[in-house]
Computed example of a mutant assay.
Amino acid sequence: MTAAYSSPINPLLAATITSPIVESRRWVENAVFRDDMPLINVSQAAPVDPPPAPLRQAMAEAVLNEVDSHLYGPVLGMPALRDEVAHQWSAVYGGAIKRDNVGITSGCNQAFCAAISSLAAPGDAVILPAPWYFNHKMWLDMAGIECRVLTCGDDMLPDPEQAAGMIDDRVKAIVLVTPNNPSGVEYPPALTSAFYKLAQKRGIALIVDETYRDFHSQTGAPHGLFADPDWQDTLIQLYSFSKAYRLTGHRVGAMICSASRMLQIEKFLDTQTICPNQLGQRGALFGMRTLGSWLARERQEILDRAAAMRAGFPQLDGWQLKGCGAYFAYVSHPFDAPSNVIAKALVDKAAVLALPGTMFSPTVAEGGTGHAERHFRIAFANVDRTGIATLFDRLAAFSP
């Protein structure tokens, strides 16, 4: 009998974890929830409502009337959208940003993958604070790039001095996410500046992912890094239009970096999606030009929900709120079992779907400190104040 032939699987891909979002959806796909206790889903940080009506109307008109909206476009995105980003970013951050510094990507995840691909080869290393955004860790693993874990303190802030001791010739970049996913913590300007100066001094890149910038609690620029006339030598910024304008399904993100790096980024993007989504780009441009007041109201609603999380948390005996901001609360639980076990019990007994810390940090078995097993991420952006109150009631009554 001839043995069945099996084509090879890339071992790096095989060793990469299953997406936590995919895995968590499997926990509930066959579950039946009581009518008086419907599922509260605080697992995913993405808007569930469609874009506002004026934006949808503009996209519909583009479908009907703009032939170019159905064709390949420039690899780095629509010139008008790149110009708008450069103009608004220069005004907000107080720096000199031009069209050549801006690339439009198929979502912010692709921007991260492109940035890393321009910096590091298999065998190189990148410093990633933990808890991390899991797709960042997944891409490093798939690409054969070492993830050097910079474990945050109890305040959920990474330490630049600790990072300095981790840098050698193999390290090509440090990654920061602010407001942070998963902790919600906003990194103070002095902290991002300290990391910038460290990266600048050591000749590596600082990647700053600002996907949730539009929901920062402070007005004005969250940092002053672009004000340095030499920012292009060190800084790579990532951004997402998905959260601001509810364009998640249209996949539109952005990267800001040096013009010389952007030429290399263009090669990566051309082999991936060829060009960003044409309708999504038109939606993003419409949003940037006309929806400032609407976005300001969206921001206030998210800030109000964050305030509700902070106000209600003291009623939970033994739980601790470690960070809260943008879309997220990061919490420690009081139980003996690890968070990945408790997460499934929360679904079964409390009809709450939240992601365990084991999806955001190395476990003890992987060399971690136990941080992963003690924590949860709660994505509250899609839960109003009434839903947040119900969430607290269920967590208060929960026992694994």
Rank of each mutant, 00 (worst) to 15 (best):
T2E: 11
T2K: 10
A3C: 09
A4P: 07
A4S: 13
L12R: 15
L13R: 04
S24Q: 10
R25L: 05
E29H: 08
V32C: 14
P38M: 10
L39D: 03
N41A: 10
Q44L: 04
Q44T: 08
A45C: 00
A45L: 01
V48R: 06
D49M: 12
P52L: 07
A58T: 13
M59Q: 05
A60V: 03
E66I: 04
V67P: 03
V67C: 04
D68H: 15
D68G: 15
H70S: 11
Y72A: 14
P74G: 13
L76N: 08
M78E: 15
L81R: 01
L81M: 05
H87K: 14
Q88F: 02
A91G: 08
R99W: 06
D100V: 15
V102I: 15
I104D: 00
C108N: 09
A111T: 05
C113A: 09
P122C: 12
V126C: 09
I127R: 06
L128R: 02
L128Q: 03
P129I: 03
P131D: 01
M138L: 14
M138E: 14
W139N: 00
W139G: 01
A143R: 12
C147K: 09
R148Y: 08
L150V: 09
C152Y: 05
L157S: 09
P160G: 11
P160L: 11
G165I: 08
M166A: 13
I167G: 07
D168I: 05
D169V: 09
R170W: 04
K172W: 08
V175K: 02
T178D: 02
N181G: 01
S183T: 11
S183R: 01
V185P: 05
E186D: 13
P188H: 04
P188C: 07
S193V: 12
Y196R: 00
A199S: 14
K201C: 08
I204D: 07
A205R: 10
I207N: 01
V208A: 06
E210H: 01
F215I: 02
G220S: 08
P222N: 03
A227V: 07
D228I: 06
D228E: 09
I236S: 01
K243V: 03
A244Y: 04
A244H: 05
T248P: 00
T248V: 11
G253M: 01
A254I: 00
C257E: 13
A259R: 13
L263Q: 15
Q264R: 14
L269S: 00
T271D: 10
T273W: 11
Q278C: 12
Q281E: 11
R282Y: 07
R282H: 07
L285H: 07
R289M: 09
T290I: 11
G292V: 00
A296S: 15
R297K: 15
Q300R: 05
Q300S: 04
A306I: 04
A308G: 08
P314M: 15
Q315G: 09
G318I: 10
K322H: 13
G325P: 06
S332N: 06
P334T: 11
V341E: 10
A343L: 13
A343P: 11
K344P: 02
A345Q: 06
L346Q: 12
L346W: 14
A354E: 01
L355V: 03
P362C: 10
T363G: 13
T363L: 14
V364G: 04
A365S: 12
G370I: 01
H371W: 15
R374H: 15
R377Q: 10
V383Y: 02
D384Q: 08
L391K: 03
R394P: 00
F398W: 13
